[in-house]
Amino acid sequence: MSTFYQLDFEKPIREIEQQIEAGEQAAKGPRPPDGAVAIDEGPSVDLAALREQRTRALERIYSQLSPGDVVRVARHPSRPQTRDYIQALCRDFAELHGDRRFGDDPAIVTGFGRIDSIKCLIVGHQKGRSTQEKIACHFGCAHPEGYRKALAKMQLAEKFGLPIVTLVDTPGAYPGLGAEQRGQAEAIAVNLREMSRLRTPIVSVVIGEGGSGGALGIAVSDRVAMLEFSWYSVISPEGCAAILWKQANEQTNNAAARALKLTARDNLELGIVDEVIREPLGGAHRDTAGAAANLKAWIVSQLQTLRQIPVDDLVKARYERFRRMGSFRQEDPETAQE
């Protein structure tokens, strides 16, 4: 707990936690020496009250996070990642590697798994936990081979009638020499087109960062949800600030985060996602098991519903889901159209 990564706005919580820790230490600390009569007036601090205070502080702080703070929570180093959720959700995960063309991108994990008793294919961005893993995963920025691996395995799922669950957690697709040379844009574009017509149910959850095309590349789905403190947008706040505000600093990043309407609630209001999945008090990084339980409940209920829908209707509804997105005005009807 003491090495817990701390966000600025969590300071009041940390202070209370330190008092609790001190209190706990004192409570189970060594008895006073020399058989001296212990002053038995209970622990000097009221632990229950402190814990209550901590809960209140968490509720207060986490109910009024700014969009910029939400981005910070979404990037918390202790926030559960795809592999954490796979471990928590699946009894028997059979990982599948490689795009059969170029390589195996560890930034996207794919494999068969059972969630409850539902057999499915799981696809998710992996950012990496250890430094070594982070570097191998390019911090969750996938290469074309990652997107091609995802599609190849999703087509397997279609072939064998398995529903698909995707977990989105990427700052964006990797911007690099090899990625461009091997067709990053083409890989994502093909995923968008092919996912739209896969004849099997697809559900997606943005579990952390939903950065642009790199996120959408595995999220053209029948149902899309976001965890409460995740973000989803066309560009990262930093990227947006650098372009539109001409400079990325804390102030412009926060302004961009606000302007981009990237929080779960904003995306729900814009009709981009269907549901916001609650996180445990104080965010998923405090309670992986709790977050995984909420995630599982949503996935299972959605898959059970989607399984009942004839596949033709399902694919048609998926088309319509994306077809209606956008905001525009239509002036006087033209003679030719509409």
């Binding site: 968008l192 066309v234 814009l270």
Partner: peptide
Amino acid sequence: ARMQESGLSLMQMAKTSA
């Protein structure tokens, strides 16, 4: 994609590709 329409611009990618 047009940043000023954020997520809605992003969704145009899926819409056109579909």
